[in-house]
């Protein structure tokens, strides 16, 4: 086979979609007639696909045992960490579940290895949407109960005006949740009622997250974040 003078770097760029449109057309024309370059592009594409399919690797059991044995036992430190973790788990159990599993387009196998798309479950089908929505609601409720437990425990630590504001907001959102549930009992297939329920659940999670973030910021003595959360501004 005759050795072609086309640079192999340009073929790597071609495989990665980094070639300008005009050059891409010229390169595609060259590939149609050059077996050597076409073969290289096929190999590079195959290699890239194989790399994307490399999945997670389960660590040996003793790794967790070692981590557990090394965790600090300081009560104050652990309490502060738990606040952050509770906020974090809400995102995992509720938000991430709903948005990736119920509403996202079907994930490809390669997606699971990439940032932000890891741990995505199987795509929802029409038949399973009802089940998925019910599960999503359960995840929200679980997350809410976890956050409520944390918020209740440290409720006295909140400034009086923030605590009062929190109670008003929670009462309002609870009212919306109850109304949406009642509407769904009457019309189980009603999309507006379902949307309204999830919007209200999301709102409650958001309020509770802000509460936990506020408690965490106060515990750290982070005045800037404390003021921002009380004012209801996003960071």
């Amino acid at each position: 086979m005759t050795q072609c003078s086309q640079s192999s770097e340009s073929l790597t760029d071609y495989v990665d979609g980094l070639v300008a449109p005009a050059d891409r057309a010229a390169l595609a024309g060259h590939l149609a007639s050059c077996e050597s370059c076409r073969g290289l592009v096929e190999d590079l594409t195959r290699l890239k696909d194989a790399a994307r399919s490399l999945g997670p690797i389960t660590p040996p059991a003793h790794v967790w045992e070692n981590i557990q044995a090394s965790l600090p036992s300081s009560r104050r430190q652990a309490r502060s960490q738990w606040l952050g973790l509770a906020a974090a788990l809400v995102l995992v159990t509720a938000g991430a579940y709903l948005f990736t599993r119920v509403t996202a387009p079907p994930a490809t196998s390669s997606d699971t290895a990439h940032a932000g798309t890891g741990n995505v479950g199987a795509p929802a089908t029409v038949e399973t949407v009802e089940d998925e929505l019910a599960k999503a609601a359960q995840h929200y409720e679980k997350a809410i109960s976890q956050l409520e437990a944390v918020a209740r425990q440290d409720n006295n630590a909140l400034p009086a005006d923030a605590a009062a504001k929190l109670q008003v907001s929670l009462a309002q959102v609870d009212k919306f949740i109850a109304e949406s549930r009642a509407a769904l009992v009457t019309e189980p297939q009603s999309e507006p009622a379902r949307d309204s329920l999830f919007a209200a659940l999301r709102k409650k999670v958001e309020i509770l997250q802000q509460t936990v973030a506020l408690m965490g910021a106060m515990q750290r003595g982070d005045r800037e974040t404390t003021a921002r959360v009380i004012d209801g501004k996003k960071s």
């Binding site: 040996p60 790794v63 070692n66 965490g216």
Partner: peptide
């Protein structure tokens, strides 16, 4: 294995700084 332990011990230490701006993953 050693580095994975380090990652999770560091995460445990810094969890109070996680504010949910990005996904936990």
């Amino acid at each position: 294995e050693d580095l994975l332990q380090e990652v999770f011990l560091t995460a445990h230490r810094k969890l109070d700084r996680y504010r949910g701006e990005s996904s936990l993953g």
